[in-house]
Nucleic acid binder design. Structure first.
Length: 889
RNA sequence: GGGCAACUAGCUCAGCGGUUAGAGCAACCGGUUUACAUCCGGUAGGUCGCAGGUUCGAAUCCUACGUUGCCCACCA
């Protein structure tokens, strides 16, 4: 097929738009209908419908797309599952705010009315991120998109709940939970962020009832909870207070007698060593209360205000203002002894940013199943983490795992599939109905108003998207073929929220061999994208670039390549738009190199290597290509994309463009007969290189694949089988001697270039160069033209004596540029002296080493031999350099 | 309080027991003989955080310390 014309400039915008459209239209991102060979599945971490596309999405989805496209090249049966998450609390907050703006009070709406608004909002905004990701070139199967609130996926989630309940792992209980007073729902431990805050530690005293006029001193940071005190606790073995145990203290407001008790939970050396016990508002106190049969007095309302039990003076105040008021009341009563500045940790609700309130309430909890097996999956390597260090974090979490509060007092989400018998005690399990379909006589039942934690629903993501647990749906989705998925790409910040829970649920619900039931075989944890100064990207700092603008400016390929080039495995990425620019520049380079090949004309010969035309530099570039291919194979097996893109670029710029193509120019000028052979080799190299590069830069490689006429029957490069390094080796015989000789030639050229630069002769292109060589005369003769061309010199002349000219030492002999007599060789002299100095030092070091008995007796033979060779080489080189120096001086 | 990571050239990072520690960017010098100035050639720049130890040999392994970042933790 004749190559189509190529424009002088690469128009990435037009190219990227055109190919993406073609790809989608052709359905080549779709999960194949016929299931041939091995599957390769990735589930995309579903973006929140409330989310905004950010740099993290770009990095994450680039990595997934790289793996997916490479898998297609390797002939795998690929399925990349996209989707969106309903984002429970986050969406509810957004919609409530919007309603209030419109003058609608969300609290006055019925459940259904509110949900209608919420659904509308989701339908309007939910797919924005997925659509934006198309600009990045993601090749997921959009036709299989799943949303966590889709009816089918909802059934998965609720079926999971029902089954866990049936197994006795989900239970309802009145327990201390993290309460968010702002959103007024319980949240899980993982959603509480501990923050150090400056506060005040108050020292106060309660009077001993049995011993009027005497007091017990107590430390607290929360005087506003005094009305909830039901006891004072001391350590049972604390000699200061032992005698008070069994007596009573007078709680100041509302005034009442409370017992003084002994409990081991009290730390003797903290504060005064006496602790006020407020079971309704502190987890430790709650435990103490349980042990001593104390009641709990809840003095707060759900929105964080004091209630009537707090007494008339405090009732109605917020937590914060009640604290000030309580301090004032203590002072008035002469009970406040001190108020010291105090730094301590406070739990903050991740979602709303306000301090959480430990609160006693009726909630649904999950006792995690299969914890030991979930640990084993990592320990035995059934699931591999990249980088490995996250394994420890994961295992540590599972070692200390607590039951999970999964109910949320929200409207937006999967409503808990539990019904309570109307008018009966909801705490009695006899009055519960738990099922997917609900009770047969619904009129006698009321459904639980709560919904499930969003993370509970995402725990089923790899299962539910493939139809689990419905047998028909699973068959339709070819569950058995596509499960387990290959690699999960996500951030380490959700290792507990999501990764661990998916592993647990999958193991809990699927039976059989661990290899077959884990949700994925590898997890790659990305770093966080930060700004160039290492700060987190945030709206308020204004340091977060707009992803779509970046793509518009540098092209999707440029952005992908740039991002990967600065994203070492598991390390944070310091964003720098200069890198995107480099990515774009590399596209231009690639474009020009291919354009140059096209300008050389069509190739009329059938493909295949003609050994008789093969020259050392051909073998050398093929060797580099094979080496690159091998490195790519290794990189993919180790998830080392950062190094991979750097190697790809280095090969292309240094080995192919700046070396091989330049050599070819000379050769073709010298000898037209080689033309076809050279062009064919370039085609072989470019063709394979485009394939290697394709996962990273899908658009330009596709465009060039087409423009270069490589497409043949298969229009899309991603579907063309990629040759392995082993297969490549078969296309030609490569002699290591020839490769080594080319390496010497390249080094010789580098040295002569530097020499010329040192002498300030860069502008002179027609100067002659003299040489004297002991054993490389034939090679120099053969490659003379190339050498002159690449060094920008005129003519090469073999001489016995180089006279007094400034000379330089290369692997191929001594070279001397025919410089004007008055040339300033000061710099060259200096360089030579420095080089001699370094060499002398090295020789001395090496001699010492080789004179050491210990070294000779203990070091391996190979190392000793290496040291000997090096010493000899250096001595020889030193001798020659000294001669050169003498001649120059 | 416990844990994890990082510390190598001005910046971002490779190297993770064996010859003289590398790359990209930035800096500096120089270059357009028709693929490419979105390019090419060259130069300079490092006692590998600090102190010990193991070893014939340490940037690399061990220990302590320092600095920074992150995670976990119910001292009120």
């Amino acid at each position: 097929m004749p190559p189509v014309g190529m424009e002088k400039e690469y128009q990435f915008k037009e190219v990227e738009r055109r190919w993406y459209e073609l790809w989608e239209k052709s359905g080549c991102f779709r999960r194949p209908e016929s299931l041939d060979g091995e599957s390769y599945t990735i589930v995309m971490p579903p973006p929140n419908v409330t989310g905004v596309l950010h740099m993290g999405h770009l990095l994450n989805n680039t990595l997934q797309d790289v793996l997916i496209r490479r898998a297609r090249q390797n002939g795998r049966c690929v399925f990349w599952q996209p989707g969106t998450d309903h984002a429970g609390i986050s969406l509810q907050v957004v919609v409530e705010k919007k309603l209030i703006k419109k003058g609608i009070n969300p609290k006055e709406l019925s459940r259904e009315e509110f949900l209608e608004y919420a659904r509308q909002w989701r339908d309007d905004h939910g797919d924005i991120i997925l659509n934006q990701l198309r600009h990045l070139g993601v090749s997921c199967d959009f036709s299989k998109k799943v949303h966590t609130l889709d009816p089918a996926y909802s059934r998965t989630v609720l079926a999971g709940f029902v089954e866990l309940y049936r197994r006795g792992l989900i239970y309802r209980g009145r327990r201390m939970v993290n309460w968010c007073p702002k959103t007024q729902t319980a949240i899980s431990d993982e959603e509480v962020l501990m923050q150090t805050q400056k506060g005040t530690l108050y020292r106060m005293r309660y009077e001993i009832v049995e011993d009027p006029g005497n007091f017990i001193e107590i430390s607290t940071t929360r005087p506003e909870t005094i009305p909830g005190d039901v006891a004072v606790a001391v350590h049972p073995e604390d000699p200061r207070y032992q005698h008070l145990i069994g007596k009573h203290a007078r709680r100041p407001f509302p005034e009442v007698q409370i017992p003084i008790i002994g409990d081991n939970a009290v730390l003797r050396d903290f504060g005064t060593g006496a602790l006020k016990i407020t079971p309704a508002h502190d987890p430790v106190d709650f435990a103490v209360g349980q042990r001593h049969g104390l009641s709990a007095i809840d003095v707060l309302t759900p929105d964080g205000r004091m209630n009537e039990l707090a007494g008339s003076e405090l009732c109605g105040l917020t937590r914060e203002s009640a604290r000030g008021k309580a301090v004032q009341m203590l002072r008035e009563r002469g009970l406040l002894l001190a108020a010291e500045d105090y730094e301590h940790s406070v739990g903050i609700s991740e979602r709303s940013g306000v301090p959480i309130e430990p609160r006693l309430s009726d909630q649904w909890f999950l006792s995690y199943p299969c914890v030991e097996r979930a640990k084993a999956a990592i320990q035995n390597g059934v699931i591999q983490f990249f980088p490995r260090r996250w394994e420890k974090t994961y295992l540590h979490w599972l070692d200390n795992i607590q039951d999970w509060c999964i109910s949320r007092q929200l409207l937006w989400g999967h409503r808990i599939p539990v019904w309570y018998r109307r008018g009966c005690d909801r705490r009695d399990p006899a009055n519960w109905h738990v099922s997917l379909v609900g009770p047969a006589d619904p009129e006698n039942w009321e459904r639980d108003n709560d919904v499930l934690d969003t993370w509970f629903s995402s725990a089923f993501w790899p299962l539910g998207t493939l139809g689990w647990p419905d047998a028909k749906a699973m068959a339709k989705h070819n569950f058995d073929f596509f499960y387990p998925t290959a690699t999960l790409i996500t951030g380490p910040d959700i290792i507990f929220f999501w990764v661990a829970r998916m592993i647990i649920m999958s193991i809990a619900f699927l039976g059989g061999d661990m290899q077959q039931i884990v949700p994925f075989r590898a997890v790659y944890f990305t770093g966080i994208v930060r700004d160039s100064q290492g700060r987190k990207m945030s709206k308020s700092l204004g340091n977060s670039p707009e992803p779509l603008d970046l793509i518009g400016q540098y092209g999707a390929d440029g952005v992908r390549f740039g991002l990967l080039s600065i994203a070492p495995q598991g390390q944070d990425v310091l964003f720098d738009s200069v890198r995107m620019e480099q990515g774009r520049n590399f596209c231009t380079k690639l474009w020009n190199a291919c354009r140059f090949r096209i300008l050389q004309g069509n190739l009329e010969m059938p493909p295949g290597i003609i050994q008789s035309f093969m020259m050392a530099e051909d073998e050398s570039i093929l060797h580099s290509l094979i080496d690159l291919t091998q490195q790519m194979e290794l990189a993919f097996s180790q998830y080392e994309f950062h190094g991979a893109v750097q190697r790809l670029e280095k090969f292309f710029r240094d080995d192919y463009c700046d070396w091989y193509v330049e050599v070819c120019k000379t050769r073709m000028r010298q000898d037209e007969s080689q033309r076809a052979h050279i062009l064919m080799l370039q085609d072989i190299i470019l063709r394979h290189y485009l394939q290697l590069l394709h996962p990273f830069m899908p658009f330009i490689t596709q465009e060039l694949w087409h423009a270069m006429g490589y497409s043949g029957d298969e229009k899309f490069i991603q579907n063309v089988p990629l040759k392995t390094a082993e297969q490549l080796k078969k296309i030609a015989t490569i002699s290591p001697n020839n490769v080594a000789m080319v390496a010497e030639l390249r080094e010789t050229i580098n040295i002569i270039r530097a020499h010329k630069s040192f002498l300030g002769l860069a502008k002179q292109t027609q100067l002659r160069i003299y040489y004297h060589s002991e054993n490389r005369r034939a090679a120099i003769l053969k490659y003379g033209t190339i050498l002159c061309f690449l060094c920008g010199l005129g003519e090469l002349i073999d001489v016995d004596s180089l006279g007094g000219r400034p000379t330089t030492l290369t692997p191929w002999g001594i070279f001397a540029i025919d410089a004007p007599n008055n040339i300033d060789n000061k710099q060259e002299l200096e360089r030579l002296r420095k080089e001699i100095e370094v060499m002398e030092r090295n020789i001395a070091n090496n001699e010492t080493k080789l004179n050491s008995k210990d070294f000779l007796s203990r070091a391996p033979e190979k190392i000793i031999a290496g040291a000997r060779t090096l010493l000899e080489e250096n001595r020889d080189k030193l001798m020659k350099s000294q001669k050169l120096l003498a001649a120059l001086e």
